[in-house]
Write a protein that binds this DNA or RNA. Structure first.
Length: 359
DNA sequence: AACTCGGGGTC
DNA sequence: GACCCAGAGTT
């Protein structure tokens, strides 16, 4: 009997390593494709610890694809509040309706059919196909990309190269695809980490080309970082007869479909209070008296930073026209918790509940 | 291939 | 502070 090839040896060692661990990862012990789908989408670009807290809550509210399809988008966004990348929630909702209308409420097992659904790309399609349906399909996320880049010493691997290496690992007899894919991800998250990988304790070190060449610290290569632009923002908590004014952002684009307090960018040379008054005039057609500062909130997005200056404001004249929003509403402070807000608004919400309507 | 799209843990 | 994460959609 010939000695096993390096891919087969790697695959068997990974699965053995994985099965000796007991890590509580959402979706791992699931068999329902719907629940696996939710777990994988929720895990995109998001820490496991964050997902763990929200996963059970989300499934409690939307226990199956029919419940998700029948829900209002606002309810799905509210369940997604604070997790970011809100297009994921919008796409989940759209995909659920496609599944109910065109697939009898069932997720397909074919990667191409999965990829045709909103919000399911190469990674999630492979993850669902392999974990839920036991198909030998690659699921290359950031962790797997790093592990493969190091095992085969690839500086800037193409998606095709990573898929090719993955398929050779998956070709190992007797290794379940979903188990191997999860082993690769878990391995990248615990042993083969971005910084300071634990090569001393690595069961794959003997076959790792980057370890052999001592290039693991620069595999995969990093793209150069760019300085993030910064935008000062002024927002107004506008009071009138015990209620505050909120607006709903357009459904597409940044923070799409979420609610916010009216406001906008502070122009060069403009004072924050001036900007708050101007934005109320321009975007809401309302004259107001700007009052005390509620909070100054620094916040970082993926591609820029903001500093949010929030002010109390008292209505003087005018009715909302909602030029920058698709909808607006006067809401009692205690009702604000029913609306999905961006994370940067949390400090504002905390500072105004139960406050008077006088700035 | 480059750009957009959040938030948070970690070092 | 910088990095980077169980990525996908758009152009």
């Amino acid at each position: 009997m010939p000695s096993p090839g390096v891919h087969e040896r790697l695959a068997r060692t990974l699965v053995t390593w994985f099965e000796s661990r007991d890590r509580d990862v959402p979706g791992r012990s699931e068999s329902d494709p719907y629940r696996i789908w939710i777990a994988e989408v929720m895990a995109q670009q998001t820490r496991i610890a964050t997902v763990r807290e929200r996963y059970t809550e989300f499934l409690g509210r939307f226990p199956d694809v029919h419940a998700l399809a029948e829900a209002e988008l606002d309810a799905v966004l509210k369940a997604w509040e604070g997790m970011g990348y809100y297009a994921r929630a919008r796409n989940l909702h759209r995909a659920a309706r496609v599944l109910v209308e065109e697939h009898e409420g069932l997720l397909p097992d074919d990667p191409a059919a999965l990829r045709s659904l909103p919000g399911i790309g190469p990674y999630t399609a492979g993850a669902i196909a392999s974990i839920a349906f036991d198909r030998a399909e690659p699921a290359v996320d950031g962790n797997v990309r790093r592990v493969l880049s190091r095992l085969f010493d690839l500086e800037r691997p193409s998606a095709a190269a990573l898929e090719s290496e993955s398929r050779r690992l998956l070709a190992t007899d007797g290794v379940r695809p979903g188990t191997l894919n999860q082993a690769l991800m878990d391995f990248g998250g615990s042993v083969c980490t971005p910084r300071r990988p634990d090569c001393d304790a690595c069961p794959l070190a003997a076959d790792c080309l980057a370890f052999k060449h001592d290039t693991q610290a620069s595999r995969p290569g990093r793209s150069k970082s760019v300085a993030l632009p910064h935008h000062p923002i002024a927002v107004a908590v506008l009071r009138k007869e015990g209620r505050v004014l909120i607006g709903k952002r357009p459904e597409h684009g940044l923070l799409g479909g979420l609610w916010e307090f009216p406001g906008g960018k502070i122009e060069a040379g403009e004072a924050p209070r001036q900007a708050a008054a101007r934005e109320l005039q321009e975007e809401m057609c309302i004259e107001a008296t700007i009052g005390r500062s509620i909070a100054v909130i620094p916040h970082a997005f993926s591609h820029f930073r903001i500093t949010l200056h929030a002010f109390e404001a008292a209505w003087v004249s005018g009715e909302p026209c909602g030029r920058a929003v698709t909808e607006w509403r006067w809401v009692r402070p205690e009702e604000l918790s029913a609306y999905a807000f961006p994370a940067a608004n949390r400090d504002i919400l905390a500072g105004i509940s139960g406050a008077s309507d006088r700035p």
